[in-house]
Design a protein around this nucleic acid. Structure first.
Length: 405
RNA sequence: GGGUAGGUAGCGAAGUGGUUAAACGCAACAGACUGUAAAUCUGUCGACAUAUGUCUUCGGAGGUUCGAAUCCUCCCCUACCCA
């Protein structure tokens, strides 16, 4: 296998990278692999307790893909062991305790989603329970003796929580160590992560050194800001665009980002810009609308297809710009010949309680075939011909009776 | 083991015997506006009935009282300080 030259590789690797610790070591490693023909091992950790990948993950996954394309070995580590331990303090609901089966299942799903970006055939997958699960208590004590509490408290979220008197349980200190042990076990050359992972990556580097292994190069990638334009993208904050979102959702969410984020998104998410997108970006300031629409199409096209992107745009224009009903609405069939609106809304799942349903009606959010329902006691007659129920601006249902023969 | 401060609606946080279903902020939902599912503005936001109605909530279990999130007892949980 012929590698590109060290410089050629570096030029690609530095894209969207925030920090490389250290560049000199990376150069040496690249040179060595070039001379020996041995690819570098590139590690990326995956948290199976959050199996819904979003565009934030794509930034670092894409970097891993670049390494693959340069001929290096991509290793995806599923952190099933740590996910199984969970977080007994109950403070972090984002890290629920998983059973072994769930962890495996999520790991599989993670890999499937990641394959939208990675070259799946060339990706090695490992489950860290394979080695962490075999460690004895004395192994763990030996491991923890390599690190001090003061060093742990250097991590800013630990420090913040300690200062604001939030609980930190001991096992949380073990997480970075466990992650570091992955690096010791794999003897990887490089580990990738977001800037928020810097501390953990460095622990891996330290531990490798402690255990007499060549320390890994740590590469941190820019974090993607979520659609709210404020916090980092995260499923739990509701500002994420997920790999598994429908094309319609993906398109709509992409359009909802603030205009100031358009350039960043293009840079981090669309490395190979299509001709139309590049052109529109030229006059971004004069026409942010077109730029954002092009960006949204491009994103949908990456995870689905150009056709799907076009359809998503049509759907969006129809429903949100022209405020018409979409053309493919789910049809619900009932035995009953009529329903009080309130009950119907609940049956359809449009409202969680009767009070909520009543409120929606009072707020003019409910319409039957484009005609607003204002009476909370109204009866909706059903027949064979489907009628369209709209609840709010986003929820549409078609209702009809089951045909009896 | 000793001490201090706490546990209130999805989250954060007021409220210390009686118009308190419980201020306020965030989230959520709806409406208006917009190129947008953004931003902004307005409204709603325990449940069930709707005309001024009823029921269930303030860590848990008991108790005092005409009446308790608010007082008492016991228990559970959390943070911090001292050992």
């Amino acid at each position: 296998m012929r590698f590109p030259t060290v410089q050629e590789q570096l030029d690609i690797i530095v894209g969207n990278v925030v920090e490389i610790i250290s560049t000199e070591e990376l150069e040496k490693k690249l040179l060595h692999s070039l001379q020996t023909g041995k690819p570098l091992k590139i590690k990326l950790g995956a948290d199976p307790s959050r199996p819904d990948l979003h565009l934030g993950h794509s930034v670092v996954l894409r970097k891993l893909r670049e390494f693959q394309d340069l001929g290096h070995e991509a290793i995806l580590i599923i952190g099933d062991f740590t996910a199984m331990i969970g977080d007994p303090s109950g403070k972090s609901k984002t890290r629920p305790q998983l059973s072994a089966e769930e962890a495996r299942e999520n790991g599989k799903s993670y890999f499937e989603q990641a394959s939208k970006i990675l070259d799946a055939r060339k990706t090695t997958i490992c489950y860290n329970s394979d080695w962490l699960g075999k460690m004895t208590f004395s192994d763990v004590i030996r491991l923890s003796s390599h690190y001090t509490v003061a060093r742990m408290l250097e991590r800013d979220d630990f420090e913040r929580r300690y200062r604001s008197r939030e609980p930190i349980s001991i096992h949380e200190f073990l997480y970075p160590l466990a992650q570091g042990m992955d690096s010791v076990h794999l003897k990887n050359d490089v580990e990738l992560g977001g800037t928020d992972q810097k501390f953990n990556l460095l622990v891996g580097r330290d531990l490798q050194r402690e255990y007499g292994i060549a320390p890994q190069v740590c590469i941190t990638m820019e974090l993607l800001v979520g659609t709210d334009g404020k916090e980092k993208m995260s499923k739990s904050l509701g500002n994420a665009i997920c790999f598994n979102d429908t094309p319609n959702d993906m398109y709509g969410r992409a359009l909802s980002i603030p205009d100031s984020l358009i350039e960043t998104y293009c840079r981090l998410l669309v490395p190979q810009k299509s001709q139309p997108l590049a052109e529109v970006l030229e006059d971004l300031t004069s026409n942010p609308r077109e730029a954002k629409r092009a960006l949204a199409r491009e994103i949908v096209a990456q995870y689905y297809s150009l056709t799907a992107a076009g359809e998503a745009e049509e759907h969006f224009d129809r429903v949100f710009v022209q405020k018409k009903a979409p053309d493919n609405i789910e049809l619900f069939l009932f035995d009953e010949p009529s329903f009080p609106v309130i009950d119907l809304l609940i049956r359809l799942g449009a409202a969680p309680s009767k009070s909520e349903a009543r409120r929606m009606i009072q707020q003019n959010a409910v319409a039957l075939d484009e005609e607003k329902i204002t009476d909370t006691n109204a009866l909706v007659p059903l027949d064979d011909e489907p009628k369209t129920i709209r609840a709010g601006k986003r929820k549409f249902y078609k209702v009809a009776t089951k045909k009896t023969f």
